[in-house]
């Protein structure tokens, strides 16, 4: 017996119990006490093993000939998700019905309906609109920003709703349509150059002042009918303002020359055939909320 091997040595040790037995193992003279674990502890281990069998019985477990063992509960996370989704839809039912029944300004005026519509519209926007208009409606070249204060077809609730329902240049009877002629075949290169300089001047950008007068004349003859005499656009015709800082296809000279010569035209689908009316209403309220709503 080695005195120093006692744990928690105290002066009371002289009366201590006899040295506990060892496991009989000795490594470099170091022996291991045998301090037996209580049997119930071992039984708890067995009990957990038995408990685990329950999982095999009740829950999906092993791969099997016909796919996998499904377990007697038939539990399935996908089914659970579907049930959760159905329950969520039911919970939303009353609000969805209210949105269906209400006019757009009524939705806008009711804080609860508006909050719900913005949240629902946000999800629908991410699924359907964000690929072109960007998450949050920031837009990109060729796809207008929905968050700014410049609208090609109008930024009121009604106008946004109209655009969403029938799209732009989509071939639907009600689609918004505008088409800028390809002036490359109608104007001389110098005229296009001059009108581009004039358009640059409209938005206060650096330009060749000598060409403005000629460009102004070309603009009045060819462009003003749609874009307005001052170039600030005409919404009814879908002709964007050329006098502001927002450009669909770029505002530098090359971009302007290119658009005048061979215009590009974006297409937006008519969502009336793709989404339900309630979703389109929620989308309308959401797009209106992005910062540019009129």
């Amino acid at each position: 017996m080695v005195e120093s091997s006692r744990e928690m040595p105290t002066s009371s040790d002289r009366n201590s119990a006899p040295e506990p037995a060892t496991t009989g193992h000795s490594w470099d003279g170091i022996e291991e006490y045998n301090k037996p674990l209580p049997k119930w502890w071992l039984y708890v281990l067995y009990a957990t093993i038995v408990w685990s069998i329950g999982y095999y019985v009740f829950y999906p477990s092993w791969p099997w000939a016909n796919g996998y063992l499904r377990g007697v509960l038939g539990y399935n996370q996908r089914v659970e998700l579907e049930q959760t989704m159905v329950a969520a839809r039911e919970a939303q039912g009353a609000l969805l019905a209210s949105i269906d029944a209400a006019e757009l300004p009524e939705i806008q005026a009711d804080p609860d309906l508006r909050t719900f519509a913005v949240a629902g519209g946000k999800t629908a926007f991410a699924d359907n609109c964000a690929p072109c208009h960007g998450p949050g409606g920031g837009g990109q070249v060729g796809y207008p920003s929905l968050a700014d204060d410049d609208w090609i077809w109008g930024g009121s609730l009604e106008e946004i709703h109209q655009t969403l329902l029938y799209g732009v240049r989509f071939g639907h009877d009600e689609s918004r349509i505008s088409e800028m002629p390809a002036f490359g075949a109608m104007l001389e290169r110098a005229e296009i150059n001059a009108v581009a300089e004039y358009v640059l001047s409209l938005s206060g950008q650096d330009h060749d002042a000598a060409m403005v007068e000629e460009g102004s004349a070309v603009f009045a003859d060819n462009c003003a009918a749609c874009h307005g005499e001052k170039g600030d656009g005409i919404r009814e015709l879908g002709a964007p303002s050329l006098a502001d800082s927002i450009w669909l296809y770029g505002g530098d000279k090359n971009s302007i020359v290119r658009q005048v010569t061979q215009p590009r035209h974006g297409v937006m689908p008519a969502w009336i055939d793709r989404l339900d009316p309630v979703t389109i209403k929620m989308l309308t309220v959401y797009v209106h909320s992005l910062g540019g709503g009129e």
Partner: peptide, 22 residues
């Protein structure tokens, strides 16, 4: 050193159970 040295253990010690009744 790693060889289990039975000679240093008291006889019967290895028969002690590893799990004890409460």
């Amino acid at each position: 050193a790693v060889v289990v040295d039975n000679t240093v253990s008291a006889p019967g010690q290895r028969d002690q159970p590893l799990y004890a009744d409460r």
